[in-house]
Design a protein around this nucleic acid. Structure first.
Length: 149
DNA sequence: GCCAACGTTGGC
DNA sequence: GCCAACGTTGGC
């Protein structure tokens, strides 16, 4: 899951109550559908810093809730306000994400050097989705790399 | 700041 | 439903 550290960094998430943040601001249907339909509490999350000086994986997290409406869609003062969304028929759903471990940054450039990750969705040309699935093999490769001393 | 790639919008 | 125009993402 991508986050711009200028908005919510892994340190921001660590400082939040219960190390948990609501994943607000997703306004892409595919990404929303992953949160709404595919994610379960306890699922592993790679916390990725995007649009910053050093893009890459900053730590390990987990899905900490089932999906529920993103409050920011109802708030006219929010950058993420959506006039077409109502409380009766919300358009944007999110999940809570709890940080489990901040790690050394695993930079995008390093990810690209790992042959086992050649098929990883986030590394594909033109990928822009802020939430993408990770295969068990990719998870193994990355979490081992992150947790090794 | 550039720009490739992709998503969304809206006229027809 | 098509598709051109426009907006956004995100690495570099």
């Amino acid at each position: 899951m991508k986050s711009e550290p200028g908005e919510v960094s892994i340190d921001d998430a660590l400082a939040a109550p219960d190390q948990t943040v609501a994943w607000t601001g997703v306004r892409n249907y595919q990404a929303r559908n992953f949160m709404r339909d595919a994610m379960q509490p306890g699922d592993g999350v790679l916390f990725y810093h995007s649009s910053c000086a050093e893009p890459g994986i900053a730590g390990l997290a987990e899905v900490a809730s089932t999906s529920y409406p993103d409050e920011t869609q109802f708030d006219p003062a929010s950058h993420y306000y959506d006039a077409k969304a109502t409380r009766e028929t919300p358009r944007w759903m999110l999940v809570d994400v709890r940080i489990k471990k901040k790690t050394q940054l695993l930079p995008l450039a390093e990810l690209r050097k790992m042959p086992e990750l050649g098929g990883m969705q986030i590394l594909q040309r033109g990928n822009r989705l802020s939430i993408t699935p990770v295969t068990p093999q990719e998870w193994q490769t990355i979490s081992r790399y992150l947790l090794k001393k």
